[in-house]
Write a protein that binds this DNA or RNA. Structure first.
Lengths: 159, 159
DNA sequence: TCAGTTTTTGTAATCATTATTAAATGATAA
DNA sequence: TTATCATTTAATAATGATTACAAAAACTGA
C-alpha cells in the first residue's frame, strides 16, 4: 500500500526534485496538521521540534516548491501572513474557507460549490480558469450559539 | 446634485471622522483610478503628485479607515501587497476578480455570482456570511487570443 | 575519487506595514 | 478671542514576514 508521502515523493521525482529529509519533515508536519492553516513560521517551529537543525529559509523554500507543484495551496486571509494548506489528493479544485470575524476560527469546505459559477465565468467572461480562491467572512456556528445564549441570559435578567 | 465624494464625506461624518484634505486627496485618487487595484504605495505616489506634502503613514491610515467603513475593500492576490478597491456605491457585496497568470491583468466582475452558493453555506454550514472574497486565476481573453494566433503562426511555418 | 550540481544553513538584506512622537490643525467653551 | 482638549498629520524608527546571498554540505555520475 502506497502512502501519501510516497506519492508526494513520486510527484517531486517526476519534476526531478528530491524528497530530502528536510522536505520530508516539512511535508510530515503538514500531513499531521491538516486543516490548521499553518503559517510558514508555524511550520518551521513544528518541524524544528523533531528536526532541530532545520533552517527557516529551507522551510520557506520547501513550501514554495510544494505550492509550485500544487501539493499545497498558499492562502492569505489578510492578516499579513501566508498560510499553507495541503490540497486534497486528487482534488481538482482548492477547498473554500470560512473565516470567523469573532473568534478567528477558519473552517474548510471541501465540496465544490463553484461548478456553476465557473461555467458562467468561462463562458460569459471568456476566462480560462486554472484555480480559484473563495473565502467567506462572517460568524461561525460556535459564535452564533454563544451570542444566542448571551441574549437569552440578558432576557432572563430583564424579566 | 450630491457627488460621490459628498456622500463619502457624510459617511465619515456619521462615524465622527472628518474628511481632511489628506483624506480627500486619497479618496480622489481612488475615484480617479477605479478598477486599477492600487497598492498603498501606488496610492501614495499618486496622491503625492497633487499633494506632495502628504506622508506615507497617512495614506496607510486613511486606507485602513476607508476599509473599516467598507468604502474600500482590501484584497490580496498573493503577491505580498494589499490592494484597495472602491466598493461600488450601494453594492451589498464585494466584486470578484479575474487574475491572469500570463500577463498579470486583473479584471473585475461586478455581478453577484454567489447568491446561490451563499444560501448553501448559510444553511448547510450554519455560517452567517458578512463578506466574501472570490478570485479566479487563469488565462484572460487577451492572452488566449494571443496564444491562438501564435499556434496558427506555428502551423503556418510547418506547412 | 573527482567534478559538478543540488540543497541547506545561517545570516544579512529587503520590503510592506505599523508604531511612535512631536507638531499642526480643528473644535469648543469660557 | 483665547485657552484647552481631541484629532490628525508628518517624519522616521521599528517591526515582522519573506527573500537573497555566500559558504558549507550532501549527492550524483563518470
Amino acid at each position: 500500500m502506497e502512502s501519501r508521502i510516497d506519492r508526494i515523493k513520486k510527484h517531486l521525482h517526476s519534476q526531478s526534485y528530491k524528497l530530502t529529509p528536510q522536505r520530508e519533515a516539512t511535508v510530515r508536519v503538514l500531513l499531521e496538521n491538516e486543516e490548521d492553516h499553518l503559517s510558514a513560521e508555524d511550520v518551521y517551529l513544528l518541524v524544528k521540534e523533531k528536526s532541530p537543525e532545520i533552517g527557516l529559509a529551507t522551510v520557506y523554500r520547501t513550501l514554495e516548491l510544494l505550492a509550485e507543484l500544487k501539493i499545497v495551496d498558499k492562502i492569505n486571509f489578510g492578516d499579513g501572513v501566508s498560510r499553507f494548506d495541503l490540497r486534497q489528493e486528487g482534488a481538482a479544485h482548492f477547498h473554500h474557507h470560512l473565516v470567523c470575524i469573532e473568534c478567528g476560527a477558519v473552517d474548510e469546505i471541501q465540496d465544490d460549490l463553484l461548478g456553476d459559477v465557473e461555467k458562467v465565468v468561462e463562458n460569459d467572461w471568456n476566462f480560462k480558469i486554472k484555480d480559484h480562491r473563495l473565502t467567506f467572512h462572517g460568524i461561525c456556528y460556535r459564535c452564533q450559539k454563544q451570542e444566542d445564549s448571551e441574549q437569552q441570559e440578558q432576557a432572563a435578567n430583564h424579566s
